[in-house]
Amino acid sequence: MESMVEVRGLSKTFDGSTYILKDIDLSIARNEVVAILGPSGTGKSTLLRCLNYLCEPTAGSVRVGAVTVDAARHMGSEVRALRRQSAMVFQSYNLFKNKTAKENVMEALVTVQRKPRAEAEAIALRLLEKVGMLDRKDFYPAKMSGGQQQRVGIARALAVSPNVLLFDEPTSALDPELVGEVLNTIRQLAEEGTSTMLLVTHEIRFARSVASRVLFMDGGHIAADGTPEQIIDSPENPRLRQFLNFVSK
């Protein structure tokens, strides 16, 4: 079966000299749940953001679903087509502050997919129910806790029926007591087995239990790639061992 995400020779430098991503090749199968681990500053967010061109790669090609964009020659319309293949859940939620929970979820359905409002609303209500936020549907982000905002953020991402869901440290900004509700929502999605997910996280135990594959990034490379058992239970790479020791303390 053809892969869902295909990255070839991906490199990124912001200043022209230090490479944050160094010639990365990566292939992700449909419905794979991939956890990405690694010390901070190693390019995990940059990799995710290259997949939807929030960050423009310096070189290489990215394919998500049926859309391929090559850094050497790309057009605005291709980038928008690529972005419609995925949806992102952000560390700082990034909900639209001028819209209620329901309107946040409806927004892309109406503007990008041009669905009629009634249909968009029905989808939004169904997804808010799924993430346990139906009773907050008319609340603005300012009136929601971090955990609630992030669950709406997940519903907003699901709304566009993306081929790939990108999670960039979705629980890092949350108070400890709110982390559980968001992880449970993500776990539920992972267990349904019908979404391809890339998840950057520092929650090692969570990654161990939901991911079907784990990547370890270090210094702009994918330094280790394997099953959760291989990567987390019996790590071979010394940098990976060091990292796991460090975060599990």
């Binding site: 939807n52 929030l54 928008r80 972005r83 419609r84 995925s86 949806a87 992102m88 952000f90 700082s92 939620y93 990034n94 909900l95 639209f96 502050k97 927004e107 892309a108 503007t111 990008v112 907003r156 566009v160």
Partner: peptide, 14 residues
Amino acid sequence: DEGQKEAALSLGMS
């Protein structure tokens, strides 16, 4: 904030 703008763009909005 930039975050909201990125969220909009990441969903495919122009």
